[in-house]
């Protein structure tokens, strides 16, 4: 059971960055109230972040992830079940993969 020291170091710095958000955010916003502008901007971060992650991946990945993403979104919107949506998306991507 190996643990690469560089990987462990990466986990630790990622953990620190994450705790800086969890604990540091509370601490900072107790010292100074975030302005309405900052709050409004931060409220948009989750959505725009995942858009920026997903769309370029579809553009560069081509047909397989695009068909998979369409199937995932379709099942998610109709059933609201994340496990089912992921399974159907992977199955759709798999079909495209087998056909080429």
């Amino acid at each position: 059971m190996k643990v690469d020291p560089w990987n462990l170091l990466a986990f630790l710095v990622m953990g620190m960055a994450t705790y800086a958000c969890r604990g540091g955010g509370y601490w900072v916003f107790r010292q100074m109230k975030p302005s309405p502008t900052l709050r409004a901007i931060m409220s948009y971060i989750p959505g725009t972040l995942f858009v920026s992650f997903v769309v370029p991946a579809l553009v560069s990945g081509g047909l397989q992830p695009t068909v998979g993403a369409a199937a995932t979104a379709g099942v998610m919107l109709t059933t609201r079940s994340m496990p089912l949506a992921i399974a159907c998306g992977v199955a759709a991507a798999w079909v495209v993969w087998l056909l080429r």
């Binding site: 990466a10 710095v13 960055a17």
Partner: peptide, 25 residues
């Protein structure tokens, strides 16, 4: 990557988790 790019993964953790900073308050 091998070894991991510490700046990249740390920045990724920070940006993705920035939303958590609004939850504690």
């Amino acid at each position: 990557t091998h070894p991991p790019d510490l700046v990249t993964v740390t920045l990724a953790a920070f940006v993705v988790n920035l939303r958590l900073a609004l939850m504690g308050p």
